[in-house]
Amino acid sequence: MYEFTPSYLKAVEELHQLPGIGPKSAEKLAASFLKMKQEDFHGFVEALQELREKVKQCSRCYNLAESELCLICSDPERDQTKLCVVEESKDLVAIEKTGAYNGLYHVLQGVLKPIEGIQSNKIRLKELFHRLQHESFQEIILATNFNYEGELTAMYIVKELKNSSLTISRLASGLPMGSDIEFADQLTLKNAFRGREKFSEEMI
């Protein structure tokens, strides 16, 4: 039976290791690499190499960075008294896009999942508590996801900080913009009621 050439098969196998890439997609990608112009392919390879070589973790907040500190940690204009705790860098980027927050971040690089053996020492929690002791924060904002693990991680942080004088807040959970109340699920609607805000002029 005829098979593809060994180098082709090897490339397919490697691509198949990537998340979300099945065997068929891996073959498609390999074929498209062969069709690419030489200079385009070099650009692609270079980008991947640069990614591996240059992108590191910020030594302070564990966000992605290309130097010792990430762009946010090295920005003196940032409010040094506020710290927002997120699960992953992509959450940080989502919050940054809103422009609503000007403080610092801490990226946990995961959440507590005891079922999968992910306990506090497997994510950046120790580093978080170290920062809280040694930097001058006044408020910590917990922005982990609103699912079981995200809530558990937030509760764990609150428990560990019960003797500190920090203001601890959690992002509000409620109705998304543009949504209809009649279609909201009951739990969300209940949370929205509990977390209702006094109407201020800023809102208009």
Binding site: L112, P114, Q119, S120, L125, E160
Partner: peptide, 12 residues
Amino acid sequence: IQKEDYDLYDLL
């Protein structure tokens, strides 16, 4: 075994 585990156990 670790203290952190015990804290999480306590929370759970």
